[in-house]
């Protein structure tokens, strides 16, 4: 929420801003997976793109500034899946601990699948 007028932080059209940063990056595998999970879960009716956006918006402006695009997306995908009852927080906690115990890099932390 951006002060008195009620405009929310993500609603940026017309705001003052600086020069457009032109640098880009190739998407990493983990980012593509986040994207794929969003599309697949949407297709299966677990949540909608508006649900994705709503959770992103509710994270607030700090998250937009501090975290990358797909970091915010996985947080939002997870939030929506928890709300949809796809798994419990207990299950998530257990799985995240299990993943961390497998190795120190993304490649090493993959399961058997």
């Amino acid at each position: 929420m951006s002060d008195i007028d009620g405009r929310r932080w993500h609603d940026m059209g017309g705001q003052t801003a600086g020069q457009i940063p032109m640098e880009g990056h190739d998407f990493a595998l983990w980012e593509k997976r986040v994207d794929a999970l969003m599309v697949l879960c949407g297709g299966k009716g677990l949540f909608t793109v508006d649900g994705l956006r709503r959770a992103l918006e509710d994270m607030g402006e700090d998250a937009f500034e501090k975290h990358t695009y797909y970091e915010r997306w996985i947080a939002s995908v997870n939030q929506n899946l928890i709300e949809a009852g796809a798994y419990t927080l207990e299950e998530l906690a257990g799985k995240m601990d299990e993943v961390a115990a497998r190795g120190a890099s993304y490649g090493e932390a993959q399961g058997d699948g």
């Binding site: 990493a28 983990w30 999970l37 879960c41 996985i74 947080a75 799985k95 890099s105 993304y106 490649g107």
Partner: peptide, 22 residues
């Protein structure tokens, strides 16, 4: 990719966990 060899981040950990749970 080379960036899969960096230290596992919190968000990558979440992605793996969410994917495996699903």
């Amino acid at each position: 990719r080379a960036d899969n060899d960096g230290p596992l981040t919190y968000w990558q950990r979440m992605e793996i966990a969410v994917r495996e749970l699903l």
